[in-house]
């Protein structure tokens, strides 16, 4: 069932239910329960190796859970069984979930425009004219109107990431997942990407953001999820979390960012 235009307040748009993930004998995620409501910006922070990226990849349906489930609008779209019904459900919501990668992953043999219109044309089935018009609007939005015909190699990292954001938005997703979208960028390039992400949040986009940018998490996040060793250690409103972390592990983690 789709909830169009009239979100039921409090309903989870996308969520993990006792989600676990093992790689071999290593448990990377351990019974994670977390959800993102419509319009929320949930920032996931924590030390490297804490499982944040794996959690995001489970939401993006790039990893299959070892146990528990991933749900979209209360429908199971990923679980350990990988049954036909679940795969079908996943296929249906696939393009409602947009993802931005740490290393951009633009397709180097296509121009900026081609990168953006590829999926709308082939998956949503819109005409080239419509796809180009939409892409033009999106490029304007991310401040790259003049880069239509450039190849990704000719762009800076920050520009590439903004194109990647536009490419994800072109599928008109209901939720956007950001996997350390600024980690591979130089400080001055981080800013331009964070500005785009902030604008997106201000428009009401539902976002799940794995990040090391504490400033962004504090100012833009509606909720902070702190992970360590495959578990959610602490969760709360940004101000409360950053000013008065409850757990020792969160306190220790946050201390690194004081200078």
């Amino acid at each position: 069932m789709k909830i169009d235009g009239n979100p039921i307040s409090g309903a989870q748009l996308i969520s993990a239910d006792r989600l676990s993930k093992d790689f071999g004998t290593t448990r990377v995620l351990n019974e994670i329960n977390v959800g993102v409501k419509e319009g929320e910006v949930v920032c996931v922070i924590g030390p490297s190796g804490s499982g944040k990226t794996t959690l995001l990849r489970c939401f993006a349906l790039l990893e299959q859970p070892s146990d528990g489930a991933v749900l979209m609008e209360n429908k199971v779209i990923g679980d350990a069984s990988g049954s036909k019904a679940v795969r079908q459900a996943a296929k249906e919501v696939r393009s409602d979930i947009g993802m931005v990668f740490q290393h951009f992953n633009l397709w180097p043999h296509m121009t900026v425009l081609e990168n953006i219109i590829e999926a709308p044309m082939r998956v949503r089935g819109v005409s080239r004219a419509v796809a180009v018009a939409e892409a033009t609007t999106l490029l304007e939005k991310v401040g790259l109107s003049d880069k239509h015909d450039a190849y990704p190699v000719r762009l800076s990292g920050g520009q590439q990431q903004r194109v990647a954001i536009a490419r994800a938005l072109a599928m008109q997703p209901k939720v956007m997942l950001f996997d350390e979208a600024t980690s591979a960028l130089d400080p001055e390039l981080k800013r331009e990407v964070l500005i785009v992400m902030k604008a997106l949040a201000a428009e009401g986009m539902t976002m799940l953001v794995v990040t090391h940018e504490m400033g962004f998490a504090r100012n833009v996040g509606s909720r902070i999820v702190f992970m360590d060793q495959g578990e959610i250690v602490e969760e709360g409103a940004p101000a409360a979390f950053f000013d008065k972390p409850q757990t020792d592990r969160a306190k220790r983690f946050l201390r690194q960012f004081e200078d």
């Binding site: 790039l62 393009s95 993802m99 992953n105 998956v123 994800a168």
Partner: peptide, 27 residues
């Protein structure tokens, strides 16, 4: 061809066939 290129295609909803013919093969 980096795995990430295929993952980007997968996340955007391209089928495995589309991903192979449009993203992997040309490169």
């Amino acid at each position: 061809v980096p795995v990430g290129h295929r993952e980007a295609a997968q996340v955007l909803g391209l089928s495995p066939m589309q991903s192979f013919s449009r993203i992997v093969l040309p490169q």
